[in-house]
Design a protein around this nucleic acid. Structure first.
Lengths: 216, 216
DNA sequence: ACGTGTGAACCGATTCACAGCA
DNA sequence: TGCTGTGAATCGGTTCACACGT
């Protein structure tokens, strides 16, 4: 599989660059809280296990944000990154599947810093439908298309059992969803104008097991 | 093959290879359930968005498991992968932080297929300590070192707030933990004989936002 | 003929190293 | 001097292409 590349104005970079920008932003905000005004690529990357050259290269795809001999102005760079990442406006998302994980995500506070707002949730279980968790009403999955279209939601999390994840995906896409964060342990098939990111906790743990098991 | 045994330690491959092995295993098990006996690299990778060459290369680091002209015997390959991945024995793990996410993970069934068993959980909240979730007793985080050492646990999940994650990490490592799956949004510092894998849901979502925001 | 296993070629991401500027 | 920005060099993972075995 060829790795998907992102090209903006003839400049190409990988999704890894984008993930790192999020990490930079998170640390810059911590620095801002500590009232630190300037930071060098060397200092900030020490906290992150990333090379200073990588940091500078990542930023270079989007412009010149530093002052030679000085470093980067923390507040200014935060603004720039928020702009680059597209989180200066609110992103409304849906959650499909309000089981253990789904309901944990409905209460997850970590999204708000990126201006992500869970707007609606769906489940098939009659006992859950109508309930409100953390201000989010659980809808009947039968209404999925209608609600997604009405609310013009473009992003969704999938926390369903794996057997139904592909079907849900198809329905989400036909309703206008363009990005999916998938927690179900299956590879979803979508048209190539739909973006998918997978979070596979069992595989991540398995990787650690392999490493421990093969030391030396 | 005599070659593979000797060379496995000299041959280098990435953790991506290991993650893919987990994916292969998952799909092979599905095929086994459907009573499919043989599968070619071509067929199995169609389901996974991975190239056939990648599949063969990944396996080649560990030996020769296929029959030329035929493909791979499903049951046999499952056994081999379980062996390679080190999940022919049970792995006992700990969970630190029984908040929304932590308690969802205590109930998560997806680990069992990889022979992963959550043995113990820790929290600081007196109201949670002593409770039992899904058969797992929540211990006082004050007893972390003692329990980890007593149970000889080598793997842990961290689901604490980010502010305390580094402190918990230090304590886990000093108690003998060698692998950490970190859900807290911070970069943890550890000695290089400790393995860390990060699951950062906000960054994953942010990546999708970026893609949607920069189309065309 | 068919599909694996694998060295070689390729390609993209990371790092280097230094010019350029405060 | 100090640190950024970036073309060039490097490094490593993926894919190619074909020899080999069935």
């Amino acid at each position: 599989m060829p790795k998907s590349k992102i090209c903006i104005r003839k400049i190409c970079f990988s999704v890894e660059t984008v993930k790192r920008l999020s990490l930079y932003l998170r640390d810059l905000r911590k620095l801002a809280k500590k009232k630190i005004q300037f930071i060098s690529s060397n200092k900030i990357t020490q906290l992150l296990n990333i090379s200073p050259a990588q940091f500078r290269k990542d930023l270079s795809y989007f412009g010149e944000f530093g002052k030679r001999g000085v470093g980067y102005e923390v507040e200014k760079l935060i603004k720039k990154l928020e702009e680059i990442l597209g989180i200066n406006k609110e992103w409304r998302i849906a959650v499909v599947g309000v089981g253990r994980l789904g309901s944990a995500l409905l209460r997850f506070e970590g999204f708000s810093k990126f201006n992500i707002k869970i707007k609606t949730a769906f489940d098939i279980d009659k006992k859950k439908i109508g309930k409100v968790i953390n201000g989010i009403k659980i809808e009947d999955v039968g209404n999925l298309e209608r609600v997604i279209k009405k609310e013009k939601i473009k992003l969704s999390l999938i926390c369903t059992p794996p057997q139904v994840a592909q079907d849900i995906t198809n329905r989400l896409v036909s309703a206008g969803i363009r990005g999916i964060l998938n927690f179900a342990p299956v590879a979803l098939k979508v048209a190539n104008n739909v973006f998918i990111s997978n979070v596979d906790m069992a595989c991540e743990l398995e990787q650690l097991i392999f490493l421990l098991n093969n030391e030396r």
